[in-house]
């Protein structure tokens, strides 16, 4: 197992390096320049030259790459945001908790609701309820998450205003006591987390249903029933415990997908996380910030895959021995 882990880790680091290197050069080769994006139409050649020198963009591209890579590798210094003139590390540190909070809450919704629907569908396969759950799952999953978010805002923030349309906190949240501030946060979290979670729960429901049906057909379950165990106990304890294994593997990948989904959701809901930060960084050609957020997304994706591999290896020794 340690050898397996080391091989996977080394491959992950190499992959990360490649992703960052390709992103670095693609960003620089793509049309657009942070210096040319001023809303001022009066930028002269001299001012352009000043700004390029200040930002270090006047150096040859390989030199810029070497400086950037050494700062990241040796000091974990991701540079200074061109748009905000603030350290990228700090911008990421400020935004990451909001994204993690949203993704975690959405994960709870996604798995909680997905499992419930999956179990409900598996209990009576091919019944009207099973068909309804399948149709709803497909319907929800097939909608773009931003559209789903906008519809949710229109319904739950405007037509039937039970939750706010966006943001992390109310305007006057700073004046609230700690307990009320936490409630205020939950109040604002509800809609984006539901949108993101419900959007993903269809796939979980389908996997849970399929897995559960497969387990329910096994001899062990027939034996459990023969022993006189209640149907509820058979389903929720014996069958679900076995059926949940594929979902554990899916969990790591879901976490990654949720983080990428939260990028779009954050823009729609003005949620101050990594997604919103990346969105503004891309618009401003903020190279250091884009590279850092790309690295973060890559790390999460690689970590998710690594976790899935490890889970698979734990479940199946043939994988780690290969």
């Amino acid at each position: 197992m340690p050898g397996f882990l080391l091989r996977r880790l080394a491959a992950s680091l190499l992959l990360l390096f490649l992703v960052l290197t390709v992103t670095f050069f693609l960003l620089r080769l793509a049309p657009g320049d942070p210096v040319g994006l001023s809303e001022s139409s009066r930028l002269t050649a001299e001012e352009r030259a000043d700004q390029r020198r200040i930002y270090g963009l006047d150096r040859p591209l390989p030199v810029q790459y070497a400086i950037w890579l050494s700062a990241v590798a040796l000091h974990f210094d991701w540079g200074t945001s061109l748009a905000y003139q603030r350290p990228v590390n700090r911008l990421i540190a400020e935004a990451l908790p909001a994204t993690l909070l949203l993704a975690s809450a959405a994960l709870v919704v996604e798995y909680g609701l997905g499992l419930l629907l999956g179990v409900a569908a598996a209990r009576r396969p091919d019944s009207a309820l099973d068909h309804l759950i399948r149709i709803l799952s497909l319907l929800v999953t097939s909608q773009p998450v931003f559209w789903f978010g906008l519809m949710a805002i229109l319904v739950f923030a405007l037509a039937w205003p039970v939750v706010p349309a966006g943001h992390l906190r109310s305007v006057d949240a700073a004046d609230l006591a700690a307990g009320r501030r936490a409630l205020d946060l939950l109040y604002h979290l509800a809609l984006p987390a539901l949108v993101l979670g419900v959007h993903g729960c269809g796939a979980i429901a389908r996997v849970a249903r399929g897995s559960l049906l497969e387990v329910l057909g096994r001899d062990a379950i027939t034996a459990a029933r023969a022993r006189g165990l209640s149907e509820r106990r058979v389903l929720w304890v014996h069958a679900l415990r076995n059926a949940v294994v594929p979902l554990i593997q899916l969990f790591a990948l879901s976490a990654t997908a949720l983080l990428s989904g939260s990028f779009v959701t954050e823009v729609v809901f003005s949620w101050p996380g990594i997604g919103l930060l990346t969105f503004t960084a891309l618009s401003a050609r903020d190279y250091p910030l884009v590279l850092a957020t790309t690295a973060l997304a890559a790390v999460l994706a690689i970590a998710g895959n690594l976790a899935a591999d490890v889970a698979h290896a734990v479940a199946d020794p043939r994988v780690r021995d290969a």
Binding site: V267, V268, S270, L276
Partner: peptide, 8 residues
């Protein structure tokens, strides 16, 4: 308040 999406 920063609201990046026009519909929101």
């Amino acid at each position: 308040r920063v609201v990046t999406d026009q519909a929101s």
